[in-house]
Design a protein around this nucleic acid. Structure first.
Lengths: 236, 236
DNA sequence: TGACAAATTTAGCGGCGGCTAAATTTATTC
DNA sequence: GAATAAATTTAGCCGCCGCTAAATTTGTCA
């Protein structure tokens, strides 16, 4: 498996994301995401097609081949492992974690990847709640949003509480914010203000940081015949 | 201070090393060190000269300007901090630490550098015994060899014992291999075999790993009038 | 001093990955 | 179905950083 350039890796990752969100990737969407001009994207797509990493037919959008998808998942694994590692081991602030990982991911060897994964205990989710692909290219299809990015007025089931900080973990536990609990987002103050939540009939004002560590899934509201709602998430 | 390309950073680092060893850097030596052709080196030197990072006069070799030296030291700081971090925090095998750092150093931000330095307790030497420049561009001029790379039959003063592994540290202490002790290298078995050393009239067979953590300085032999010997080290 | 070898530089090319401007295809609308 | 708008591709350029081949400079030795 040939070594790809950093630019190629960026394109594969971007195509993967667009495919997830919209089924396929257009030249324009790709260009916007990567902050290049459409002409540049076309250029690269032809290169990736020659390498059999994407299926590309002119004017018609692009899709990853199985080989391309495998590569994309490897890169995403690098990225998300790095994010988590930077956050946990080096206490990089959450908002900077992404851009740091963005540069480091291309320089990460397989060995170092393994060591980092092991140091983290082979985690399956990154600090943003996104699933980390396994080494052999499998990825959980669910992306869990955290309490800070979820619409207010709805009920959510807590599926995961990020375990980076034991103190925070204990704090959240005291409030009753534990996996399987049902939480209602009452209100959200703007500009990084607290998030009002209700758990077990108690109301709490949660800070931004705390909210970022609580990952949830919407509780299925019982509609006619209990039909499941389709959801779509976007971003990352 | 403009951001340099990875190639430029590699050149600055190489020029610095050659200057240390030989006072100045020739096109050929540079090309050999960087594994490029001399013509390519000439090309880059002209670019660096335009940026006022080196003083370059054709056919006459090259020298870092103060600005160039500052940049070089920054890069070397990145490199050596990474080496130490990879070794201590992630247990990357010593022989792989260099090439990993070589790729990561160009992607390291200032913030991450600071966090890594702090996590390591602002260390001053890397795992090879090379000094780590400070953030403001000062560097200790002494490079201490370790016991595994030192000629046999001589006496050495232990100046530093690397503190990465507490177990190892205790072991070495038991043997009497502590800073300020004088050690004689009796014999060295080939092919990664043990190194026989004498400390306090006791003889020990030291493994490769242990030997790599003991950094020494030759004991000044008393020659006529106690004149100091000049030494030169090479490598890294 | 002059001739030659070695080191260095110059000239020109190639792949990468951006860009702009112009041409082309696709989609939409009357 | 023709006209037009929007998306996409093509053509050609540029900077980076390698390369080779040819020209030039430097240093040495008779």
């Amino acid at each position: 498996m040939r070594r790809l350039t950093a630019a190629m890796e960026d394109y594969l990752k971007a195509i993967y994301k667009l495919q997830q969100q919209a089924g396929s990737a257009t030249t324009q969407a790709l260009a916007r995401l990567l902050k290049v001009k459409p002409a540049s994207a076309t250029n690269m797509l032809k290169k990736l097609a020659r390498l059999k990493l994407v299926r590309y037919s002119a004017y018609r959008g692009v899709q990853l081949t199985p080989a391309g998808e495998k590569m994309a998942l490897e890169i995403i694994r690098h990225h998300r492992l790095l994010e988590l590692y930077l956050r946990q081991a080096l206490k990089v602030p959450l908002h900077k974690v992404h851009e740091e990982a963005e540069r480091l991911e291309h320089a990460l060897s397989e060995e170092l990847e393994d060591l980092i994964a092991a140091a983290l205990g082979n985690p399956t989710y990154d600090p943003h709640g996104d699933p980390i692909p396994t080494k052999d290219g499998h990825i959980s299809q669910t992306r869990h949003p955290h309490l800070a990015e979820v619409p207010q007025g709805r009920r959510f089931l807590i599926v995961r509480v990020s375990d980076s900080n034991p103190e925070l973990l204990r704090y959240l536990e005291e409030l009753g914010l534990v996996p399987q609990a049902v939480v209602t987002v009452l209100n959200r103050e703007p500009f990084g203000g607290p998030i009002w939540v209700k758990v077990n009939d108690r109301t709490h004002a949660l800070g931004q940081e705390a909210a970022h560590h609580v990952f949830v899934r919407p509780v299925e509201e019982v509609t006619q015949r209990g039909a499941r709602r389709k959801t779509r998430s976007g971003r990352r």
